[in-house]
Amino acid sequence: MFALLGTNGAGKTSTVEVVEGLSRPAAGTVSVLGHDPFRERSLVRPRVGVMLQEGGFPPDLTVTETTKMWAGTLTSPRPVDEALSLVDLAHRASVRVKQLSGGERRRLDLALALLGKPEVLFLDEPTTGLDPESRRNTWELIRSLLREGVTVLLTTHYLEEAQALADRLAIMHRGRIVAQGTVSEVVDAYPARISFVPPAGVPLPVVSDVDASGRVTVRTNNLQETLYELLAWAHANSVELSGLDARSASLEEAFLAIAEEAA
């Protein structure tokens, strides 16, 4: 799985739409399964599944009718019931689409994307609007697809989703990729943080930033050493570090740092 992350308006969806073959690239070339997805649509489409950021369903069709309609357009579809059970929608089969909740609609969209047994799956924010349980179930479903050998291109706002599922990822900002690699490669480029509020007027042994509320943030590439140093110093001098918080770099830290740097 490759995950595409980015600030709002960074161009994730535009990028994905070009890769899906919905729009023609302004410059450069795109290749999906060895073909141009825009010009050789008929060669690429039978082998890919697409979940758009916003699913387009006629509100007055039922879940089953919608899925059957989609199956009718595919070369080798899964059985409709199977696709609906994959996303836990079997019990809502005879409900009209307009009566579905936002999360159920996302799952219907995912069912349609899976209906053609795709080799490559495009998921544009697949878990937006899902409750935590449905999100976990969707993650499990995606993991099992990955195990079966399906390639997934994911865009998401949830950084923990990318961290949990992605093999590789890229972070976009204002139309450009600003960081890419495996999760640990991207994360390791950013320092860990220690923050706390020291008593007033005490000189600190480490380099730090202080914000308006007096909270101190220390950035370090060696969390263990720096934290030890700091705690040993505090202990020796009987200094209380209130609200102490130490965290290793996470995707969230990396993402925020990128958004901040660029702002």
Partner: peptide, 13 residues
């Protein structure tokens, strides 16, 4: 309703 866009990511021409 974004139905046309949805249909366009499928196999139909």
């Amino acid at each position: 309703e974004l139905v046309l866009k949805r249909l366009r990511v499928g196999e139909l021409t």
